[in-house]
Amino acid sequence: HPLQNRWVLWFFKSDRGRAWQDNLHQVTMVDTVEDFWSHIQLASKLSPGCDYALFKDGIQPMWEDSRNQQGGRWLVSLAKQQRHCELDRLWLETLLCLIGDSFEEHSREVCGAVINIRPKGDKIAVWTSDAENQASVLRIGQVYKERLGLSMKTIIGYQAHTDTASKSNSLAKNKFVV
């Protein structure tokens, strides 16, 4: 069962002694439903300081990539206790949204998704290519929030990568919220 896009799974392990890019490794590539299931790993198996990223083939999971420079991310910040009960479910649902081409005609705006395992709180984000395309960004956010089963009162924010890159404090401003 072929997927609409070929996807690359990346692994990142932070190592202060090395340049950021050198800590990023391509794990595998999937382009069928069967491939996906035979390669995918549980997020909770990752140790703190590590990330997974699933990105369309040809797009690197970094701001500098030409398909990410003008884009941004829908960010889901998890409370510490959510790591044990919600993390794997939320990450798997995110991946199913990606490989299932679930964002209607806006799916072509989706670049990939990243999960960061961090002591101060894990984060899952869906990256899109054009932060100025309000219609697509908002529709992707609405579908994503619904697919994650987040309650109406849980607000998720969209931040442009340029804002995240230049933020002074730890919180970049939200360009959109749903």
């Binding site: 069967e34 490989i99 081409d101 799916s107």
Partner: peptide
């Protein structure tokens, strides 16, 4: 045509061995 799969369809393949 568009290859779009909903979550139920995808989950059906979760424990099926990949045919290599």
């Amino acid at each position: 045509g568009k290859k779009q799969y909903d979550r139920e369809f995808l989950l059906d393949f979760q424990f099926m061995p990949a045919c290599i």
